[in-house]
Structures are given as structure tokens and as C-alpha cells.
Design a protein around this nucleic acid. Structure first.
Lengths: 235, 235
DNA sequence: GAGTGGTCTAGACCACGGC
DNA sequence: CCGTGGTCTAGACCACTCA
């Protein structure tokens, strides 16, 4: 038998998926939800505790519980773990290199769990910090889930893809898995990142997931780690 | 005012630091602890919930709550995040390259929060997977906290440093911070790892912490990422 | 069957935010 | 002042483990 609070958690998650409550908005109070679902307030609390631990909901004492959003200033970079060696605050900029539609390869179709040869959006861009090229990103997303996306929209959002996914397509990325390797820059990446060929680059391959572990973005980032490092916390 | 369960959590942590309950052992039941600390069982539960979420304690339904240990099979590698590209299970081996005592540099003294120029143990080793060199580790630990450690002990433990820390010195590492970069192999690392000079290597700089965020190990690992990658989960 | 952690409830009071 | 989430309690019952 499934615990009651797990059922409540699922119901709340469903409402979130349905867009019943929007990012940034408050959800009903614990007592209200307890009445709606006909359980005790403590049970709702336990469900919200877990969603809050997963950063899906945000509690604010005295105010209420809010749907997490990526539209706030400090969440612009979402999954970016690169930090300056000197701890400086940096000016982020973004140049779109290419934008196209293409057919998914079998490998990509499998990763994104879509039909083989379905249409995907593929884009390449360079992120600069303080005018210096730092990351070359190759991003692939299924066209089906992002209908009507254009190069102009990407440029306008200044590189905050996750903000665009959320505000324009109602797609909230909740978690991501990354595979990290060290590789040598080839001709293209070297010239775009303004480094010598064969320079060591950090290769970060990322799959991002929305609700219910549905993968919706594949991304390969090549990073110059002369003045930056990738943070990782283990426990 | 500090919540009651936070106080209980601190008391439990103190007992753990004092070694009152050893790794692998069960701690007193929730009701017993509630009597000892003169709080309700629910309050003890909340304290243990958090320690359990931090993997400091392990709950086992019907049996009791146990002190986490690193002596079990699957925890041998503790903080190692490298995975084979092919998902294979691999045979780990370990060669000690050097072992020495030296004076801490100012930088290291600051990182480990010890007096400048205090004695530290410095060791270098190569980890091989399926006979192939994979990681070159440089490890530095304060001699003060690991009195009597010898090269023989390290060799005998077959590279499981964290297991040795725990079983021989009562030091349990709870978490670690890592800084990851891509670098080029120099002459020494290239020859020890059996790759060409200037090959790209993953540089993983790690600081490990025991109870109360006390740093007790600094480590630099250089990894060959041809057939392996570093896993990272973001949320 | 006894003892443990796991779930669920109901109710009291506290701390914070905002009107 | 009210409504919110945060803490704390007490007690009931369930699920699991082991002798």
C-alpha cells in the first residue's frame, strides 16, 4: 500500500503539470489542501516537505508555499556550475552561431525518448563572460515540445534557454544528468572559443528532465577552464 | 530560539563524534532517545530524519537506526564518480608511487585549517581499472589527525583511503567539494598514466570534510576520460 | 509476540508577513 | 490583527524483523 502522503504528493504534482498553479504563484495553504484531499494537515505537510526538498515548491514562512520558478535573477543560469577561479561576478553574454531544424538520429531519439527521425531543433551558441568566450554549447530539443521556437526568440532571451522554455513553452526543467570528460579542442571549437587547437576543454554532456523524469533537452557544452572550474558537491 | 529538534540533532552528532556509537552499530531506539533527551518521540524522529537524509545515519524498518559506515563493499569508492562508458563492472587496482612527510605550504594549511608548516602526509598513487591506468592521485592529509600512518598500511588497504581513515583512525568523511578542470598531461602524469604528453586529462581537486565541516583531506586526481566519464546530477 | 521504524491524525502554540 | 508556515506533542495503528 502506498503511503497517503505519496498520493497527495502525486496529486499536487499533477496539478503542477496541468499548469493549475503557475510558476511564482502561491499554491493553496496547507489547511486548504488538507480539506480538498480530505487528509490531515500534517500529511499535506509531509508531501509538501518532499516537493520543497526537490526544489519544486518553495515555502515562505508567514506567506505561503510557492511554485518554483526560473524567472528570477539568480536562477538565470540554472544548471551552470562554472565558477570563476577568483570568485568574481561576471557579465554574461551570448552569441548564436547557428540555428536549424533537422531529423533526430537514432541515438538522440533514444535519449529524448521520441520517435526516430522526428524533427528536432539544433542550435549552437557561444557564451562569453566579461567578453571572453567561455562555453560553446550545442543544444538539441524536440520540435514537438517547442513549437514555434525561432532563432530570434533565442537571441532575445540572451541565452537563458531555461527561462525561455518556461515562459514561452511552459516547460520547467527540474533536474539534469551530466557526463563530464576532458577533450582536445578541434578546429571549430578552437576558433569559436578563441583558443589554440588541441587545448584541453571540459566536455559537459547534459540531459535535462521535466516532471516525471521526461527528458526534453540534450546539450553538449565545451568549456575553457583556464580561469574557471566546475563545482561539484558530494555526499 | 533554536528548534528543539536541532538541539537533539546536535546532541546525537556529538555522541557520534565522541565515538559513543560506532559505525555499523545501532543507536538507541527513537523512544529511548526521546526519554533520554526528555522530548517527544516525534521530535527525535525529525532530528534523525535529517541525519538520515545526510547519510550520517541509516534507518532500517523493524530493526533500528544505524551509524553509517564506509566499510561495506559498495562504499569502497566513496566519492568516486567515474563511470565506464560501457557500463562495465571493473577490477580496481592500486599502485603507490610515493609516500612522504612534508611541511604544509601556506595554501594547504589554510585549506585544511591547520597551523602553517605543520606536518602533512603526502602520497601519490595510480588507480588502475582492468589493468589500465585511469587516475593519478596526489593526496595530502594532516599528520596530526592520522598519527602512525605508513606506506604499508596504504598498500594493504588497496587504495581504499576512506576505509582506512575510518577503520584505523576513526575519521569518517561525510562530504566533499570538488573543483573540476580540463588540463594537459605533463611529462610525469603522462608517463604514470601511460598516455601521450599533452593528452587532455580531467583534473579533480577535492577537499573532504568530516563532522562539523572540518576539512581533513586535500586531493588532486588526474583522470583519463577516454573510456570513462564523471557523473554529475543537478537539481 | 515484542520491539522497531513508518504513517497518520488532531490539536496546541510559535514566528513571521502583511494589512 | 489575521493567516501563513514551523515546531512540538501524544497517541493510534501499520509494516517489518527476529527470536
Amino acid at each position: 500500500m502506498q503511503p497517503l502522503y505519496e498520493k497527495v504528493k502525486k496529486k499536487i504534482t499533477e496539478s503542477l503539470v496541468q499548469g493549475e498553479w503557475s510558476p511564482g504563484e502561491a499554491i493553496p495553504s496547507e489547511t486548504e489542501l488538507a480539506n480538498v484531499y480530505d487528509v490531515s494537515q500534517g500529511t499535506v505537510r509531509k508531501a509538501i516537505d518532499e516537493l520543497s526538498a526537490e526544489s519544486i515548491l518553495i515555502r515562505r514562512q508567514g506567506k505561503g508555499t510557492y511554485v518554483a520558478t526560473h524567472n528570477e535573477e539568480n536562477i538565470q543560469l540554472r544548471f551552470l556550475r562554472l565558477t570563476s577561479n577568483f570568485g568574481l561576478k561576471e557579465k554574461l553574454d551570448n552569441q548564436l552561431v547557428s540555428f536549424s531544424k533537422e531529423k533526430a538520429t537514432n541515438k538522440l531519439a533514444k535519449i529524448l525518448n521520441i520517435n526516430p527521425a522526428s524533427t528536432i531543433i539544433s542550435l549552437k551558441r557561444v557564451l562569453t563572460f566579461n567578453e571572453k568566450p567561455l562555453i560553446l554549447d550545442l543544444i538539441k530539443i524536440p520540435a514537438q515540445s517547442f513549437r514555434g521556437v525561432t532563432a530570434e526568440m533565442v537571441v532575445e532571451k540572451k541565452g537563458s534557454m531555461y527561462r525561455m522554455y518556461e515562459s514561452d513553452f511552459g516547460v520547467r526543467m527540474l533536474r539534469a544528468d551530466e557526463k563530464i570528460r576532458a577533450i582536445n579542442a578541434n578546429f571549430e571549437s578552437a576558433s569559436l572559443l578563441n583558443v589554440k587547437e588541441n587545448t584541453s576543454l571540459l566536455s559537459v554532456e547534459r540531459i535535462s528532465y521535466t516532471y516525471e523524469n521526461k527528458p526534453l533537452e540534450w546539450r553538449l557544452g565545451l568549456c575553457v577552464t583556464d580561469d574557471h572550474y566546475y563545482r561539484s558537491e558530494l555526499d
